[in-house]
Amino acid sequence: MSELWMMIGKRLLYGLLTLFIVSVIIFGASEMLPGDQAQALLGQSATPETLAALREQLGLNDPAPVRYWNWLAGAMSGDFGISTSNQRPIADLISGRLYNTMFLALYAATLAVPLSLVLGLLAALWRNSIFDRVANASALTSISFPEFFVAYILIVWLAQGGHFTSLARIRENTTFVQRLDMTFLPALTLTLVVTAHMMRMTRAAIINLMASPYIEMARLKGLSPLRVVLRHALPNALAPIITVVALNLAYLITGVVAVEVVFTYPGLGQLMVNSVADRDMPVVQAISLIFASAYVLLNLLADVLSTLSNPRLRHRR
């Protein structure tokens, strides 16, 4: 057992290291910008004196490692600095939007994960059947669609039929159920995009497994197909399935950007796109850090879970 925990500990350390490197890359990116944050805040017309004063105030004269440390420490405690385009604290800009984005991603995930796992499993079971072929072709098709295309098709089809709203106007007093209703279309868009990927990968993982000799052995023991799949295939398919799910949840993170823009949904993605257009570096950095951390953590979680599900590692010689 201890060897297993060592391995997981190592993986966690490695994950922390990755997070650190990612934060360095994101911080280092701004160092490549001509001019600095003070210049960006005050604009081209600022006098050298006011610039110098602001630099002093923001600590921009410190060496890069110190500034990195201050930035990271601030980010940890929720203080990301000040937006250069509208001079507001970034924490204020982000907080509500972070919740909205998380809500949307989770909403899509709860729809997509069970749906795609079941579809993938069925496609693998009924391999080469009509169901498998149609599911495969449609999955391949929907993978090929840009997110905004899916979104607009859904708007033309469902919103203009009057079934759902195409603009997700979230207010303070929106109830949970109203929120579910309002965000249905963006969540459905994300679901469609991610499900296709996840289904194909689940199918491939299971088919790969069904070719192994111990599955043939299980069939030759006279077990029913259901028992073969549930008892013999599934325990060994956990690791690949976990990886598939994590990979696609991570994909949701980027998929959210275009979808939020189409539905003018007040989330982080939309804010990020606006900030890129305005070249508002501190905001872009903050959002990049959040997205990238979520991505790294998801992959880390998947790795740890699939390590735990591996009997060869769980029960050492």
Binding site: T18, Q285, A292
Partner: peptide
């Protein structure tokens, strides 16, 4: 490559485009 791949592609490209301009 591992470190660079730890940042989602779209997010990374948005970050870089902010720096270099679109």
């Amino acid at each position: 490559v591992d470190a660079l791949m730890a940042i989602p592609a779209l997010i990374f490209s948005l970050l870089l485009l902010t720096i270099f301009g679109t």
